[in-house]
Design a protein around this nucleic acid. Sequence first.
DNA 1: TCTGTCACG
DNA 2: ACGTACGTGACAGAC
Length: 890
Amino acid sequence: MSNELDKLVLIDGNSIISRAFYAIPPLTSSNGLHTNAVLGFTTMLLKVLEEEKPSHVLVAFDAGKVTFRHEGYSEYKGGRQKTPPELSEQFPLLKELLQAFSISQFELAGYEADDIIGTMARLAEEQGKTAIVVSGDKDMLQLTTDQVSVLITRKGVSEVERYTPSAIGEKYGLTPAQIIDLKGLMGDASDNIPGVPGVGEKTALKLLHEFGTVENVLANIEEIKGKLRENIESHMDDARMSKQLATIFREVPLDYSLDDVTWKGYDSAVLAGALRKLEFKNLVERLNLSGANDATEAESAEAASQYEVVRVDTVGWERLNGALATAEAVLVESSGDNPHHGEGIGLSIVSGSECFTIPYAYLASPEAASLRSWLENAEASKTCYDAHRVELILASSGIALSGQTFDVQLAAYLLDPTEADPSLQGLLQRHGLPPILSDEAVYGKGAKYRLPGDGELAKHLAAKADAIRRLKPLLSEKLEKLGMNELFYELEQPLSGVLAKMEMQGITVQTEALQDLGTEFQRRIDEITKAVYESAGFEFNIGSPRQLGEVLFERLGLPVVKKTKTGYSTDAEVLEKLEPHHEIVRLILHYRQLAKLQSTYIEGLLKEIRPETGKIHTFYKQTIAATGRLSSQFPNLQNIPIRMEEGRQIRKAFVPSEPGWVILAADYSQIELRVLAHISGDDGLKEAFLKDMDIHTKTAMDVFGVPADQVDGNMRRQAKAVNFGIVYGISDWGLSQNLNITRGEAADFIEQYYRTFPGVKRYMVTVVEEAKKNGYVTTMMQRRRLLPEINHSNFNLRSFAERTAMNTPIQGTAADIIKLAMLRMNEALLERGLRSRMLLQVHDELVFEVPQEELEAMKALVPDVMSTALKLDVPLLAEVSVGSNWYEAK
DNA sequence: TCTGTCACG
DNA sequence: ACGTACGTGACAGAC
């Protein structure tokens, strides 16, 4: 029950931990984790708890990188130094420690800690409670009232300065509400809030004492003189925006009430355990916790996962071989992004209380024979991290990985495909497990990448193998609970091996054909460059969007159609609008096209051809796309030109690897719209596909209300755009942009479409409703995508999530289907003993190389497997074509 | 390292 | 009133 004695302490977690990090000298625990910031935070916390004796305590954290503040001002907090890894690795430690304190912690995507604190302080006040805000950031002073005081840390973290409205009055001569005006005028370099140049604290205070608010300063600008006036006049918008950015948002939609942050003190045993783990011995003493028993459940789990690091190199092989039978997880560490060029660093294998680490070079030694056969043994089941990459690395050492029954990276991807950080460190944190050192902390990043000493390396590899072991039960249980076992065990995991096989096979690309094409492109580029210079009357770098913008819009005076945040936009859409104004525009469009082909496709692909084999080996990433699609890298073979004839020529260089063979390509016809017909159950759409009608023409007939023979090219084009729009999660605005029509006309199209296909409309409404209720959407194979922003109060974030809710089940199910087809195709080739090889996947297309004598069989087999991969209420159609290269196979 | 642009489905 | 179509990767230029 609340009464006026209730007192809240609200702590700005991010602010205090980073102050502590810079204030306290470096400190590491014996396992190498940095702990100085956690120690500083704890010192501050204990002091506040002691002095304030609060009834409620909350620590708020910033969540994610992008907040609503970035929407109005994308540079918000820009230019800020990256959080050093020594600090970021302390966040999980702090969060764990706060749990031991039984202190609540909140964070909410899209908001900063300030906003959560501001909201809680408001709630406290409304309920007649008092609140103490603790932060290192003076912005917080705006929250001060008779009931809310603010403690700002000074030099260090344990010394604080207490601010009340009267204290602020004495110190600055301002009211708390004017703090944001102060910021608006002076800015804040650390958050990249501009303010007005030349206005620091002194000038800002003088202005506010005279005029009171930013708005009043601007309204009375004529009373200000000289340079100051000029500065303010030219930065009025900056001042207004800066004030807005500095304003704490006090209406955060929190799912919590004040009661949820009640604090009744900590459990001595739990806290003692947590502090001992961090090796804060002095604090244990100071709090008289020495006697407290710390054998909590968490602690024993921790103890159970302890292991001895056994370094295997010239010695230790017998011990390793003895442990292989009970091995639980294996880690293969390698360097570089491209696993086809990766170098093995080392292996670690965890088995019971032992973790063996082996330098990669020893894998080839005679002593490693048992290890090699264990890696290749399908019966020896292995938990790994990124088995696909491991398979490629080992393959380059002549080892064929087998028995990979659980991949924690793949499992984590399926549980949350939008999570950008797939590192083991990130997985541990997200699944609430004790952390290990980050790769970045051990190896460094970019140019600073280097391997640490053998001892440190062994420790790290062991910690990673142990982390894999600890993650597995958690992840497998979650998959099971969400009904994703089939997707994981029957689809994604087996697919990883199929992908590795395709990549290792590679596709032959004719160097000479590319070079000849490149010579021709270059000739045209030179010609056009000359014509552009002539047309402009001077020379400049056409490839520089900035210089091009200057030339077009300043020197040639063409109308500005669109701006980017850094200047004029010069993209193709803009240039097409400018075409009638100046002959140079057409030349630039053609230049752009050729330059793209030359740099990305001629030069880029040439660099990727292996001279020994004449092949290109792409790498399919299975854990990138939020919808479940694959992505292709080093090089990307999923975006080879086809739409324009000039670029399409590139495909002529993609040929079979053996004489007398052919390229066979098969693509799904309208797979996404067929999936939509199935999921929505719309009768009209289903019927169209059952009758195998041209879907865009059919749509045109219905939307425009005309018979088939009156559908002209333009109508069909517009109908096609409507169909695309439907799949993307349509909005009238988006469609109007695409078709260059008014928003009203686009809205009419959509309405007419929905009238024709009411089942589709029902689906769109339902899927969004379901997403709002559940927080996620799923595909037919139970692939899921979380949509945390589907109920967000911000229109943009919410709308984006709604379109995603409509699109993901469609695009994702199409991805499910082709992945199933790939598995089935792989099996079919093996079963029938065919020599034909599956080489590429391009979202709705599979590319094979086929010996002549198998051609007839493959022409029947491939479309059959593809169209029966998953049973839908409408037929799935796959169309095959054959040629002597990828261009011909169209 | 980030931004703008453009290649694909 | 809000202001993007969904999903990717690679390159050049500018910092």
